[in-house]
Amino acid sequence: MTAYILRRLLYAIPIALGVSIVCFALVYIAPGDPLQTILPEDASAETIEMVKKAYGFDKPIPVQYAIWLGKVLTGDFGLSIATGRAVTDDLFKALGNTMLLATGAVVVAFSLAFVMGLVAGYHAGGPIDRGVTGIAVIGVSIPNYWLGIVMVIIFAVELNVLPATGMGPRGSDTFNFWEWDHFRHLLMPLVTLSMIPIGIITRTTRAAVAEVLNQDFVETLRAKGLSEFEILLHVVKNAMPQVLAVMGLQFGYLMGGSILVETIFTWPGTGFLLNKAILTRDLPVLQGTILILAMIFVATNLVIDLLQTMVDPRLKRS
C-alpha cells in the first residue's frame, strides 16, 4: 500500500510540472509583447532593453521558466499589472471565498442528489426514476450563469428578498457564516453553483445503486430475511465509495469552474478575480490564479484516488 501511495505521488509530480509549464506558457501565447502593457508607447530602445532585463525577459525561455518556477515555489507570483499589489495577497483571500462557496455547493448537492439518486436507483425503471432522471438531465444541461440571472430576477428584482450581489452588507469583504445578513448573500450563488453537481451526483448514485441492487449478494440478503431497509443500508455502503469519489471530483471542478457564477453575483472569489484579470489583461494575476486552481484540482484528484484505493484495494492501478 505504501509503495502504491509513493508511486501515485511520484506520478503526480510530472503532471504538476506540466501544468506549471502550461501556465507559464500562457504569457507567451498572449498576443503582443508581454511588456507592452507596462511600457509607454514612445519608450526608447534603451528603456525597453532595461525593462526587459529587469523582468528577466532577456534570458532564454527555459531559464526564464526555471526562475519563474523558483519564485512560484516560494509563493511569489509577481505583481498585478492593474493594481501593483502582490498577486499572492489577493489570490489567497479570494481562494478562501471560493472554497466557502464550493464546499457549500458540494454539500448541498450531495445531500439532495444522494437521496434522489438512491430513490431512483431503488425504483429503477419506474415513474420516480424517470422523474429524477429528468431533473438530473436538466441539472447538467442548465447554463448556470443563466440560472443565476433568473434567480436574481426573481428574488432580488421582483420579490426583493435576497441581495443580488456581494458577500455581505455594505460591500463587506469578509464573510460571517453565522450572521443572517451575511449568510443571505451566500444563498443564491450556492444554489446556482450546486446545479451541475446535483445532476452529476444524482446520475452517479442512481447508476451505482441500481448496479449494486443487481448483484447476487442482495439476493442472499433477501433470502436471509433482512428487511428492505437493512438491505438498503448494505446497498448504500457499497455504492458510497463511487459516489464520494464523484463528489470529490465535483469539488475540484467547482473550485476551478466558479468563474461564471462568481461573476454574476460579484462574489469576491478566484473566479471573480480571473474575470477582472481578463478584462484588464492582467496576465500575472491570470497566470497565478489558474496555476493555483489547477494545482488544487490535481491535488483533489490525487487525494480521491488514494482514499478510494484505501477503501477498496481492488482499484489499485499500476
Binding site: I21, L26, I29, P31, F297
Partner: peptide, 24 residues
C-alpha cells in the same frame, strides 16, 4: 498520454478561460 494528462489536469472551463483569456 502523459501530454494529454497535463491538459486533463485542468477543470474544463478553467482551461478554456485560461487559453482564450490569454489569447484574447
Amino acid at each position: 498520454m502523459r501530454t494529454v494528462d497535463v491538459f486533463y489536469a485542468f477543470p474544463s472551463i478553467l482551461l478554456a478561460v485560461a487559453i482564450s483569456g490569454a489569447m484574447g
